[in-house]
Design a protein around this nucleic acid. Structure first.
Lengths: 157, 157
DNA sequence: ACAGATTTGTTACATTTGTGACCATTGATT
DNA sequence: AATCAATGGTCACAAATGTAACAAATCTGT
């Protein structure tokens, strides 16, 4: 009788499956920081990211934010609207391209960014202390390497 | 005149902010593997995760899956229901605790797991080839370290 | 200058997710 | 045994997200 059992040539190892392990680690970290912007400010992750990018880099367009923050344009659009309602963000027309709006933080928005940015920096420092400085540097390097590897042309797998 | 400008003592550095960089890297990787289970099988991430865990570890309860896969119990509940509708999963009562159901893959479910597991393994291998073997090992170690660091008691930041 | 393609951003709709309430069962205390 | 707390799982509702369609503006090539 022939061997009709299903037995794939290479066996799948969940423990070393990068998409899973990376997601798990990153979610654990994200969740633990979420308390700051969500519970204290009632912000979503998208809103916090847009705030952080505008605070960090100054005036940008929605598309630029989306690219820098890896956020889909609808997420950016909604986050911008929310931040605008809070009066943390304002829009200005671009003379050269009337499709575009130059987004920037208002005075209130800059204050909010200052407070949240300080909290974020403090969180990051505490986490870095637990990990060790060398590990943090390695993580950043590997994050870069992963993004490059994935964004490279050519099918994976 | 006094310095009334807002200038926090430590300035926030987005490039080295771990929650952001980790999420960015992990999402890039997750998205690139999503094509396999989503476009080819019409599965959500939760469904794929539950399938992978049952295929990898055999029969488990919903709570056990949730813990092992870092999935909220409602996500597990819904994924289990979907997989059951596909006849890839079946439930059996637990004699000792009638609240609990022992979940396991059906024959079809095992076949699906074989196919998807092979694809996953192949994807992982291709990504590992681009990264280099040493880096992969480091990523896994750091993922462990991050999860431990975050799950440790005591407020971060 | 013009037609068609592309880009920017918003909106509507469907799907997915988070939250809290809930029931049934089990465990702990007395 | 009786009570009360804790656990496993499901459901309904609200919130967030993905998808596709869209209008307005710009760019391209002729």
């Amino acid at each position: 009788m022939s061997d009709s059992q299903i037995q794939p040539p290479l066996h799948f190892d969940l423990e070393n499956f990068l998409p899973f392990r990376l997601h798990q680690a990153s979610e654990a970290v994200s969740q633990s920081f979420r308390a700051v912007y969500r519970d204290e400010y009632g912000m979503t992750r998208s809103e916090w990211r847009v705030l952080a990018h505008l605070g960090q880099y100054g005036a940008m367009t929605a598309t630029e934010i989306g690219h820098a923050a890896s956020l889909h344009k609808t997420k950016v659009s909604r986050a911008v609207y929310s931040l605008e309602k809070r009066r943390w963000l304002s829009r200005a027309p671009d003379q050269r391209d009337r499709r575009v709006q130059i987004l920037s933080l208002t005075k209130s928005g800059q204050h909010a960014y200052s407070r949240l940015g300080a909290r974020a920096q403090s969180y990051n420092q505490a986490l870095a202390d637990r990990l060790g400085k060398d590990r943090v540097a390695t993580i950043i390097q590997l994050a870069d390497a992963l993004q490059r590897a994935v964004e490279n042309p050519g099918r994976l797998g």
